[in-house]
Design a protein around this nucleic acid. Structure first.
Lengths: 141, 141
DNA sequence: CTTCTATGTTGACGAATGTCAAAGCAAGTG
DNA sequence: CACTTGCTTTGACATTCGTCAACATAGAAG
């Protein structure tokens, strides 16, 4: 597994891909608290922004969505050919997503498969989800 | 980027009275399905990526977190002065966050207050949360 | 080994971005 | 009105980013 230097955003304490759909107590060890808990420090912001930045490009977002929604939870690069950019550019963006920790790649024979890193994405969702409660404590409305 | 208007990410079905220099959508009507439901279209990706991109900068993320975590759910620009950049730059980033629909601003007398747009942030969290099935963040508080 | 297919990497280039200094608007005070 | 404070806009700059063409690498097949 050629693992590029993934961002140390959260600690990958779960090496297993956890294929069990059951409610596994996957310890989502996010680097940062919810965005509305306290102001992020400069370092926290630096690391977290790198993740959001990775999804801040339309092509990358399509690639990520393509992988995330693909059958089996993973997609081969060969499955990707309609995102509007050349193949080298696709590879470039996949690398970015990998470096951000959002995707993981694995070579199986001729093809390379990409799959989503659930914990990292969950951590991002947690930061956002808690930052937007359905009922804001706004007095005046 | 001359697109200086709130992104049509979610449909403002409730015509807010626009008390602020920016429109204020107030309803959770996400533009897009969870990222693992189906591949996003080019248009969906374009709109959604703009939001993630807004949080893809460390300074903006700190500003957002600062506003989101501030007492009362809103913060005056005067409360912000330790993010490491000059005041005009702060204003610039706040504008970006406003244009992305993540923040709303309102002038009250001398000061300008910024607050989080819960629906937009919730929409982002929903897209991510559902894309990471393994690992529910709601554990021990 | 040679050849073919599938991906990744390198180098280059235009466009977008983040930053600040300076000037400009808005609101309060005397 | 002049003066002060708070925030935004403008203009300029260096850096980063997204993109492609060309080349390089990894397996598979003969």
């Amino acid at each position: 597994m050629s693992n590029v230097k993934a961002l140390p955003l959260l600690e990958p304490e779960t090496p297993a891909p956890t294929p069990a759909p059951t409610s596994t107590p996957t310890s989502v060890a996010p680097c940062c608290p919810p965005l509305n808990e306290r102001p992020l420090t400069a370092d926290e912001a630096e690391r977290t922004a790198a993740m959001f930045k990775a999804l801040g490009d339309p092509v990358r977002l399509r690639l990520f969505s393509l992988v995330a929604s693909h059958e089996g939870g993973e997609a081969c690069v060969c499955d990707i050919s309609d995102v509007g950019v050349s193949q080298p550019t696709v590879s470039h963006h996949l690398k970015k997503l990998r470096e951000a920790g959002l995707l993981a790649s694995e070579r199986r024979g001729t093809w390379v498969y990409y799959r989503v890193e659930p914990s990292v994405v969950a951590a991002m969702g947690a930061m956002l989800g808690a930052a937007a409660p359905t009922g804001m404590p706004t007095g005046t409305g």
